[in-house]
Design a protein around this nucleic acid. Sequence first.
DNA 1: GCTACCGTTCGACTTACATCGAACTGTTGG
DNA 2: CCAACAGTTCGATGTAAGTCGAACGGTAGC
Lengths: 105, 105
Amino acid sequence: MTTTTRELTHPDLADVQLSAVLFALSDPTRLDLVRQLATDGTLTVAECQSIGAEVPKSTFSHHLKTLREAGLVRNEPAGRKRTVTLRRAELDQRFPGLLAAVLAD
Amino acid sequence: MTTTTRELTHPDLADVQLSAVLFALSDPTRLDLVRQLATDGTLTVAECQSIGAEVPKSTFSHHLKTLREAGLVRNEPAGRKRTVTLRRAELDQRFPGLLAAVLAD
DNA sequence: GCTACCGTTCGACTTACATCGAACTGTTGG
DNA sequence: CCAACAGTTCGATGTAAGTCGAACGGTAGC
């Protein structure tokens, strides 16, 4: 209806508010996923999901959306699957030290 | 003694979860207050409130409670008034670099 | 001692978010 | 092609959080 493209929209980090990033990270499930991506690099959605707590895929997709809209991750089509990547370099530039502090805990 | 009986409870920072801190900081009103305290040091509740956006005192008190329960601020009686202080040193020890990154933006 | 003052707590209301099943869309393997 | 697959979106539901007026409890000034 709205779009036939598999590409999802990713915000420019210049437009992202710190409060939105902090909110996205304030959920334990999402925080775990970010940690996951920080250590493992790019993963497919299924891989992310399998390692974290067991949660229905619709719920997981919702969290992914929250992280994506807050500029934390990229979610891109890769054949029949999808890859998820932490936007680390961009985040480090936009919010220096934030990711490091969050991941250190 | 002049020590007041109206002490509020403050969590030990060892017991606070990162996600709770991030959540507390994810609200713009609360984030502003933390910034306020970071630059001005200890303030009375009235002083905090007067500088930030105009909000009813009950609402403001609610935000203060959220910050207090997340271990971000101390709220202590001071005569007829109350002082609010950022728990900076403790936070820096518990979550190194976090406050700096948040305040830098 | 009253009384005005500062700030928290209470209660009611509204809105935002989390959760999950089911339906849907695009994609590839056979 | 078409059937199975990978994930997102939709819709419904429960719960948590924000907002605010009013009531309450200490404290100090007079």
